[in-house]
Design a protein around this nucleic acid. Structure first.
Lengths: 137, 137
DNA sequence: GTAACTGCAAAATATTTGCATCCTT
DNA sequence: AAGGATGCAAATATTTTGCAGTTAC
């Protein structure tokens, strides 16, 4: 079962709640908000457990947060890596100013921005410059 | 007074609360959250009025929202235009795929993104490609 | 004078915390 | 068996709504 593998890989204990919530993410095309998960009446998980599970998943790198402007946070599965020449989503690229390598941050989604009237977006790119993990220690 | 001019230009009535809140934005370098404004003990505006004022300002185009991943929305003043050679903030650039002009969207801030551990951001750029207001009608 | 804005009260919603119990390892 | 996860209860915090009094135009 895929969910169990993900949990074990993350070093988390395998529980019903976690498997169920993970399953929702795998089944869902897009990101989910806390309310989406809780609302999913097919499941019967305490509200508090959902909060804690989402937090644990974020901390474990299983899901990531997508900011919104409506007082909710969206969560989406992190992808393992960037498949060459095959972009799944619009994601952030990180350019290290020290080693000059560009990392494909496949698990960091480009957040939505509200554009002024009249500007119709087709594609969004986000580039972050800084120092990468290899150049700092 | 600058605040009054902004309010009148937006077609809003000029009230003490609105002038005070606008003043906070003018005085502040960065964006403000609802809590920041309410916390500002120098002012004495009801919590509800702050909510309604922020909403009105957003709808009137005086301020705009910046999404975050901590269940708060940041608000920042919209700037009229991009002053040549003088960048106030990190803001979004819009490249029109039709006329190829690049617009400086000074009132669209680059939202924060949560990077994986180890990546230390210094600067963030956001480029949106699409069709601009001049090329669509 | 009228319409719109504000403050207060209260409802509704969302989030956090503590603790006892249950489950995973 | 031990540590961690869950559910319940309750405390906090946040946001929304209604209404009466006040203010701007």
């Amino acid at each position: 079962m895929q969910q169990e593998a993900v949990l074990k890989k993350a070093g988390l204990s395998v529980t019903e709640s976690r498997k169920t919530i993970l399953e929702l993410f795998f089944a869902s095309e897009g990101a989910l908000a806390h309310a989406d998960i809780e609302k999913h009446s097919s499941i019967n998980i305490d509200r508090v457990t959902v909060y804690r599970t989402l937090q644990t998943f974020v901390e474990s790198g299983i899901i990531h947060q997508i900011p919104t402007t409506d007082n909710t946070i969206l969560y989406a599965l992190c992808k393992d890596s960037c498949e060459a020449g095959h972009h799944h989503d619009e994601h952030v690229h990180f350019i290290c100013v020290s080693c000059n390598k560009t990392n494909c941050l496949d698990d960091v989604m480009v957040p939505m921005v509200k554009l002024p009237k009249g500007f119709l977006p087709i594609q969004t790119a986000m580039i972050v410059k800084g120092t990468c993990i290899d150049c700092r220690n």
